[in-house]
């Protein structure tokens, strides 16, 4: 078709990405009590919900970092939710969470992955145990980094004891409290709440305001 329209194809502004990065524990213990299966289902459901969201000026992008075995891996590179075909995560090995925090920090600050146009990112940390590698230093670095400091961070512990694991999650999620999901269905509910909080942010006309979307009361409300 020849356009009389000056021969130019007009363009619309590209939507701004709203990044959601999941840091998922895939250590050996996650293979017990069906935890990894539930987590897979939760993340897949979340991505489907994001893909179905009709957003005016934004586009939800999802990335997943897994930590297990001997280190952290980029299991799902950042992609618009609409284009992701979810690959199941498998659980085995140790809990190298420090490694995952380091990788997350690298990804967050790679301008080729998260451009400067992006809205404030959301980080979700899921773990069922204590880190098996040094985590304090990578955590400090992430939280002090430009995008890490601004990010909305949430954490959930999956059937873990109150040990060092909870301390790590607390440090990560501050000022929010980390949540506990003792049973599999609680993890689903938690992810539903997280999904809703991200959805509400992109639906809002001020998605970059990261201070309001997810107060403790509202989280309690959603999880209630």
């Amino acid at each position: 078709m020849v356009h009389g329209y000056g021969g130019v194809r007009p363009s619309a502004a590209m939507p701004r990405p709203l990044p959601v990065l999941v840091l998922a524990d895939v250590s050996g213990s996650m293979s017990q009590h069906g935890k990894i299966e539930v987590l897979n289902e939760c993340v897949a459901t979340m991505i489907r919900s994001f893909a179905a969201e009709d957003v005016v000026r934004g586009e939800i992008n999802v990335g997943v970092v897994t930590f297990g075995g001997e280190g952290a891996q980029l299991h799902q590179p950042f992609q618009p939710a609409t284009r992701i075909t979810w690959q199941e995560m498998r659980a085995s090995g140790r809990t190298p969470m420090g490694d995952a925090l380091t990788l997350a920090n690298e990804i967050l600050h790679d301008d080729a992955v998260i451009g400067r146009r992006a809205f404030v990112p959301t980080l979700i940390l899921v773990s069922d145990g204590q880190p098996t590698d040094p985590w304090q230093e990578p955590m400090d670095r992430l939280l002090a980094s430009p995008r890490g400091a601004k990010s909305v961070r949430m954490a959930v512990s999956v059937g873990a004891d109150d040990g060092e694991g909870i301390d790590v999650l607390s440090a990560f999620a501050h000022p929010l409290r980390p949540r506990r999901a003792d049973e599999a269905h609680e993890l689903s509910r938690y992810f539903a709440a997280v999904t809703m909080s991200v959805t509400m942010r992109v639906r809002s006309t001020r998605p970059n305001e990261s201070n309001t979307p997810f107060s403790e009361d509202e989280l309690d409300d959603l999880l209630g």
Partner: peptide
């Protein structure tokens, strides 16, 4: 015209603070 009157190229290419 399918364009927001204040979202010029410089704003679209910059961070979200510029959109604000």
């Amino acid at each position: 015209a399918l364009v927001h009157p204040f979202l010029g190229d410089a704003v679209e290419e910059a961070g979200p603070e510029e959109q604000d």
